[in-house]
């Protein structure tokens, strides 16, 4: 479990904006915000089907990384099978469970396919799960979260403040 402190987050936001060299004006498609790059796992420690939970983009948002064992949209690692998502159901925000290769919401039974961009294939949710783009450092195998593609439930902006 890794948490991003408020201080780190502020620093990351500021440097993000600076890197862009401009102030944001209006809305664009996700990821559109200055997300921090945060180490969330190392490839060597991942087991197929065993989820790794972490906080991202801040301490109040649970996220989950999983090695699926089969190629996935947005997958990283040698098998292109490591993906990460917001772990809050996009329907009403319940914490999702990873079971038998997919996410199930224990509150209202929405189901999301992690190999298919977090697609809703059953249940009440309308939106796919927001996927977290990952980057792997080849030498170390460290996996970094780089942003959030889609709105985390319960927020009007993925970055609080």
């Amino acid at each position: 479990m890794m948490a991003l402190t408020r201080r780190q987050f502020v620093k990351a936001s500021a440097s993000g904006l600076a890197a862009l060299g401009l102030a944001r004006a209006g809305f664009w498609f996700a990821p559109s915000l200055p997300y921090a790059s945060v180490k969330v796992a190392n490839l060597a420690n991942l087991e197929v089907g065993k989820p790794v939970y972490f906080s991202y983009p801040d301490a109040r948002s649970q996220a989950v990384l999983v090695k699926l064992g089969t190629r996935a949209i947005g997958g990283v690692g040698p098998d292109r099978d490591v993906v990460a998502f917001s772990a809050s159901c996009t329907h009403m925000g319940c914490p999702l469970q990873f079971k038998n290769g997919r996410f199930v919401c224990p509150c209202h039974y929405s189901m999301f396919d992690p190999a298919k961009n977090g697609e809703v294939y059953q249940g009440l949710a309308t939106e796919f799960l927001p996927q977290i783009p990952l980057e792997v450092v080849p030498q170390s195998g460290d996996v970094f979260a780089k942003g959030v593609e889609g709105l985390i439930w319960g927020r009007v902006s993925n970055l609080l403040g």
């Binding site: 809305f27 498609f29 996700a30 796919f128 927001p130 783009p133 942003g147």
Partner: peptide, 13 residues
């Protein structure tokens, strides 16, 4: 990477 256009911020009424 998203299969369709996503947002990470929404307008507030």
């Amino acid at each position: 990477m998203s299969l369709y256009n996503r947002r990470d911020e929404l307008p507030i009424p």
